[in-house]
């Protein structure tokens, strides 16, 4: 069996474990990315926690996680349940809502930046010309994070809906029919049959959402680069800026360790739930 797993194991060791260990090690050195690393002990971590931008970035990661644990999940659950009830519309609607997922992140980011939010060329400009006074949310440090989140939700929720629909279709038709015969309406069916029926999938997606939310980078980097005034800075953009613009790889690695810590916590919760589930089923 070990021989069978060897190729995958080797690939994982080379492209995941080795870089992870190197990143963890780099967090204890001062290194500009090209010169010789110098041992620094906990200095990078001390500098990091003394930096107010780190805390605002971490807070933004929590806000992002809260948004993605609720808004797209609710949208996707309702859409999946509706599609389950309306099989004729399923193929067309699924294709439409899945489409944003297959558009490149850079393209999606530019579309929202230039064609929607821009006060020069976007829908915001058109609305301003027609008497509505609306400013670009990407230019406001208090709203930029939410504006980028809206872009990512547009890109993400359709995929979630398709995943949830696939899970709902595994629920026994007899169970759904029985609930209906007992007089269950849409919300009762959703609450007492569909949600419990997809709870393993839902749990997995929620755990993955937490992990991904602490790694979020692309949309924020493309649309706002963490600004303005660090308004949409998250840990990943914080780490990127330190590594590649400030030549401070150790500081960036320390931030990456914090990102990984939250991912590890989420993974631990998931494993714990799985073990509990396995124990209950045996």
């Amino acid at each position: 069996m070990w021989l069978f797993a060897l190729p995958a194991l080797l690939i994982n060791v080379c492209i995941i474990l080795v870089p992870a260990v190197l990143t963890f090690t780099a967090a204890f050195f001062i290194w500009d990315g090209v010169g010789t690393p110098v041992w620094a002990g906990l200095t990078n971590f001390q500098n990091m926690v003394a930096d107010p931008v780190f805390w605002s970035a971490l807070t933004n990661n929590f806000i992002w996680t809260a948004i993605f644990l609720t808004v797209p999940v609710c949208l996707a659950l309702v859409m999946a349940a509706a599609l389950l009830m309306a099989p004729k519309a399923r193929i067309v609607v699924q294709s439409i809502i899945f489409l944003p997922r297959i558009i490149a992140v850079a393209v999606t980011g530019r579309i929202f930046q230039g064609m929607i939010f821009s006060p020069a060329t976007g829908i915001v400009a058109w609305l301003n010309e027609h008497g509505f006074s609306i400013s670009d949310p990407l230019a406001d440090p208090d709203r930029s994070l939410y504006a980028v989140a809206a872009v990512d939700i547009w890109h993400w929720w359709g995929f979630l809906a398709v995943v949830f629909l696939a899970a709902m279709r595994q629920i026994s038709v007899d169970q759904i029919e029985a609930a209906r015969l007992d007089g269950a309406g849409f919300f009762a069916l959703f609450r007492y049959v569909l949600l419990p029926g997809i709870s393993p999938t839902l749990t997995l997606m929620l755990i993955l959402t937490v992990i991904w939310s602490f790694q979020v980078f692309e949309f924020i980097f493309i649309v706002t680069r963490g600004g303005p005034a660090y308004g949409s800075e998250v840990l990943a953009t914080f780490a990127y800026r330190h590594a590649f613009f400030e030549g401070d790889v150790g500081h960036a690695a320390a931030a990456a360790c914090v990102m990984s810590l939250f991912g590890l916590c989420a993974t631990a919760v998931y494993l714990r739930l799985q073990i509990t589930d396995d124990a209950q089923s045996t």
């Binding site: 005034a229 800026r241 613009f245």
Partner: peptide, 19 residues
């Protein structure tokens, strides 16, 4: 130098936006 310049760019937005 790099880190000073990076902060010069990023931090001035905080000044302009009264942060």
């Amino acid at each position: 130098p790099g880190a000073t310049n990076s902060y010069l760019i990023e931090g001035i937005e905080q000044v302009w936006l009264n942060k």
